[in-house]
Amino acid sequence: MSEEPKQAQAPSGAPRREGGSGGHGGPRREGGGPGGPGGPGGRPRGKRQYFRKKKVCKFCVEKMDFIDYKRADILSQFVQERGKILPRRMTGVCSRHQRWLGVAIKRARNIALMPFAGSAAGTQAPRAVVPAAAAVEAPKA
């Protein structure tokens, strides 16, 4: 059963291959992909069609050997909206740089350049609620 559809598809797939890039492994597998749902009937078609772009460590690309904790603009790219450090699998940072990045973010948090929890927007929101209190505090200080 499984051989027949493959044979039937092979000739139809051949011209496509010639018209395409002419690679060996990739195109053949793609030809088998549409055959998949016909045969076992279980696989969704979309499975082979998308493939994830390989993420590259941004710090390796820019050849940064030292991540400065003072550059909150860089660090904030690797932090969630609420201030959590993003995992490596999300950002594609290599393990070494992720280690340094963690240290840098924690230092930045210490000196209030980065939030521990809650974003800059988070601190702005309650600010609108207590302008009166702030105004009272200000003249005292």
Partner: peptide, 17 residues
């Protein structure tokens, strides 16, 4: 500069490095 969180009830501070 704006502080990322409240420090001693202040939301801003003067940074010196």
């Amino acid at each position: 500069r704006k502080l990322a969180y409240r420090v001693a009830k202040h939301r801003e501070g003067i940074y010196v490095y």
